[in-house]
Design a protein around this nucleic acid. Structure first.
Lengths: 209, 209
DNA sequence: CTTCTAATTTGATGGTTGTCTAATTACTGC
DNA sequence: GCAGTAATTAGACAACCATCAAATTAGAAG
């Protein structure tokens, strides 16, 4: 039973395993000692002031992370450092791209965009301004802004009156600056507002000509 | 209260802290993300699929390891990567001599704690934050910090005036960052300070009610 | 086959830590 | 002042882990 899953499959997991393996003072000391020469379990236990089972446990962990090699000699097992692995891993740690990708990345999930009835150009706007269902930034260019606003307006049922809080709640699911969105919707006459009472409703579509 | 004891004192501990800081997939992902641009807490929580307190916790840990910087902007806090620290630490990891030296660490000798008149809970704080008579780390949690500070205050005789240097000398026997300790003692009104002359004395105990 | 030795496995225990919810603090704007 | 938002702290729970003593495996040598 000396199964150890080799690296190469899911690199990020290996990286985490690597740091976990070094995240303990006893194991760091072991690495330091093995950096000078190979040791067997009893020796290490003696030097570290730990029991043999404990050291055995640590060595198993280091071995799972591919940081040490094991060689049997008579009745004792001799552990040595895999300096190459250490170096490789430390190099990988600086690869931010890979680190960020390691995110099981709770999925951007842009599939909902495909379900919309849009021109290709408009779809592009959605893809570049949304991350998941969140608006990354409110477009400054009016044409792009309008693409988003028209879609937003459809979130309001025709003939229904909404309080300002209700409107805000709906808009907030898309971007924190709901006030800005509300104002733009009104400015572009996609949403109508009653004079003083703070009631809103979806504006009737223009005759399209 | 955003102080963090700088590296440079006991390097091996810092190295362990460094690896511990990276020994978690969430924190690795955060490092990866910060490698591309600064983020605030809410953004990270969203991208990672974690709650804000959890992310806050991780960032605090990364900050203790000096891997990220914090900058306040309005009501939000913006975290950025300290790529320099990352590199420095990774370089140190290959210094086997230093790692091996980290080993001696024979016996801590914590018997003196048993002689203190403390509740069980407070005693635990001492056991976990002291190695021998040295404070391993200044607690971040206020309740734990106070346990230590009250004990520290008792090192000053009531009614006696101490110069700042005398205060520092006493505090330095416990932790290299004596300035931090001195400030905390004053902040919590366990030590009183004369306006300009740099004289300190033990504050009278509150009526305890 | 038996015994000795080196090491691992097992089981238990106490401590650490990742994560959450709820409560609290800090800042902004009305 | 009050309300709202961003973040941290407090408290709790569960999973994990370092450590040890005791039991077990595996080699070497009689």
């Amino acid at each position: 039973m000396s199964e150890i899953t080799p690296p190469g499959s899911a690199m990020p997991d290996v990286l985490e395993q690597f740091f976990k393996a070094l995240a303990d003072s006893s194991r760091l000391r072991i690495i330091g000692l093995l950096g000078t020469r190979p040791y067997n379990v009893g020796e290490l236990a003696q030097v570290l002031g730990l029991t043999e089972p404990t050291v055995s446990h640590h060595l198993a962990r280091l071995r799972e992370a591919w940081l040490v090699n094991l060689r049997a000699e008579g009745t004792m097992r001799i552990y040595s450092l895999r300096a190459d692995m250490l170096e490789t891993m430390l190099r990988h740690a600086l690869d931010f791209e890979e680190l960020a990708r390691m995110t099981p990345a709770p999925k951007p999930d842009m599939t909902w965009v495909d379900d919309l009835d849009l021109s290709e150009a408009d779809r592009k706007v959605f893809y570049s301004y949304f991350r998941g269902r969140q608006l990354k930034q409110i477009p400054t260019k009016q044409s792009k802004l309008l693409v988003i606003l028209r879609w937003l307006a459809e979130k309001f049922a025709p003939g229904v009156q909404y309080t300002e809080d209700e409107v805000n709640a709906i808009l907030k699911t898309v971007h924190p600056d709901y006030a800005r969105l509300r104002r733009e919707l009104v400015d572009f006459k996609l949403l109508a507002r009653e004079g003083g009472g703070g009631l809103y409703w979806r504006a009737v579509e223009p005759p399209d000509a």
